[in-house]
Design a protein around this nucleic acid. Structure first.
Lengths: 123, 123
DNA sequence: CTAATAATTCGATCATATTGGAAATATGGA
DNA sequence: TCCATATTTCCAATATGATCGAATTATTAG
């Protein structure tokens, strides 16, 4: 990931409303959410939402697809992954042992691979 | 981590110069770098640097300590860790298997514990 | 074709952030 | 004390971003 791309993503996420949108989409997963539903859930004006979705989209953090009259937005997990990787890149250069705590964070994500799949299903 | 704190960190990092500063400090580790050295390394005006260091500091991403005439800045790895955790929080809610790729990122951080120490320089 | 719904684009105003020069503060040495 | 170094603060000009109402495009149904 290039620095410029990372800056775009970070500044896109560095906004109250956009971070809320993104986290909602991350939570929703690849299924995504229609713009109108996002607007209702977060209680924001449709034009403001549209502007913010555009910023997130332009930063590469989300994707969209039309489905009937609605436009469905989804988080781009690959981009998110790239951003996290960029942020901890070179973290070990000076003192590798500092990175250990960061591993715990990753462990939570890895846990999703097994734990969440089996225990999450609400039938 | 509260959403407001995350927004502050992300918007602080969503800036060309500040991201460069932060990554330099992450690379440097807990030893830190003096403000003047950062300015020389990144070739920025001391007052601009000072303003940006203040933003990063206020966001909780870096800490500082005086050492003689210099002020040494260091990345706050705990805060960084908290931010990464916040970003992937609830990621599994909709589709746990999506989180798997994120695990690879963490794996790199964990690898630092052993690998980086022994074969750091790629020549 | 017309009406209704979904979402975006336009345009103006307002607020906030960035920049760089100059001055001020803090520390260490002669 | 006086000077040099290191960093920060102050200030004004400029640029960028956010917000909201109103108009516009796209899609589906009648």
């Amino acid at each position: 990931m290039e620095s410029k791309a990372a800056v775009n993503m970070l500044s896109a996420l560095g906004h109250d409303g956009r971070l809320a949108i993104f986290r909602l989409l991350v939570k929703a997963g690849p299924v995504g959410i229609a713009a109108g539903d996002i607007a209702r859930t977060l209680d924001v004006l449709p034009n403001s939402l549209s502007a913010n979705l555009n910023v997130l989209s332009h930063a590469g953090l989300i994707t969209s697809r039309r489905e009937g009259r609605s436009i469905i937005y989804s988080a781009d997990f690959g981009a998110m992954s790239g951003l996290l990787g960029f942020l901890m890149e070179d973290c070990c250069d000076g003192a590798p042992q500092i990175c250990a705590p960061l591993g715990a964070i990753v462990a939570r994500a890895e846990a999703c691979d097994g734990t969440c799949l089996t225990e999450k299903e609400p039938a």
